[in-house]
Write a protein that binds this DNA or RNA. Sequence first.
DNA 1: CCTCGTTTGTTGACTAGGAAACTAGATCAT
DNA 2: ATGATCTAGTTTCCTAGTCAACAAACGAGG
Lengths: 153, 153
Amino acid sequence: MRVSQPLSPLTAHLGYWMRLVSNHVSHGFARKLADRDVTVAEWVVLRQLYDEDALAPSRLAERLGMTRGAITKLADRLTAKALLMRTDHPDDGRAQTLALTKQGRRLVPTLAVLADENDAAFFGHFTPDERSRIEQFLKAIVDRHGLTDVPVS
Amino acid sequence: MRVSQPLSPLTAHLGYWMRLVSNHVSHGFARKLADRDVTVAEWVVLRQLYDEDALAPSRLAERLGMTRGAITKLADRLTAKALLMRTDHPDDGRAQTLALTKQGRRLVPTLAVLADENDAAFFGHFTPDERSRIEQFLKAIVDRHGLTDVPVS
DNA sequence: CCTCGTTTGTTGACTAGGAAACTAGATCAT
DNA sequence: ATGATCTAGTTTCCTAGTCAACAAACGAGG
């Protein structure tokens, strides 16, 4: 005879609901980006370089919480699409610097529209007050745990 | 001369903060599970079968929003670890049914403790009132978009 | 100098999943 | 009965990451 004690259900955890919603927000965005042949990780890199203008791969890796190996491959893909350029550092023979191409720079604003739309689709029905409360909750966790990387997946 | 209009920052989106927090909650949990040689997806399957007792792979796939191919491989891994058993359906030659082994069943409660701890680590500092408000927000989105799958990644 | 340790980016082996083709078995319509 | 269609699970190929080993270049101490 087996008696299994009942456990608190998966749904008892806030993490469960967060992950559920977050996954759908991300996948929704990923689907929109896919029309433009861009992944979420690629979008984050593009958006980052739009502001930064030029950045070393290793800095980018820290920023996004990814390995340098992943950045190498990401950069490969983006240069293959002619959205990004590698330049060797003039003084340091090891280092490179990544920057958007003209096309890359031109693409970012249109993708930003998709990002705005996606966020609105999921959070737009909340009042501004509710939205800022949610943001407070989330930022409280971010602060408390010292989370700094830009989420990519 | 290039004039690039400033865009709303990544951080303007609630989706950004959700993904940041959610990723860390998941990865935190994944790290705890890794000590027991279990992945998050495996945990979800184990937990699901703990309640269900037996389930067809295809039902599981629907439940978790994964492909049947992924379930095949997941089940392979779990049977290799002797946590799960496949049984052929007596009447239907195509069908199987998945169930936990004794060891699998024994493992789930200890993993459930990890899940509880992880959730507490990230959300425990909120008051019960705040927590239920967060849950309301999240469930509102879930309802509005009809999200039903158990999030795995 | 020159050597030792460090940093930079790349590579190869591996993992977990998706998409779609595939096999085998069931069901259904004649 | 039997051919067509559908369903269940598997397999193959692909993608996008990690991890760890690596080569090249730098920098600091003797």
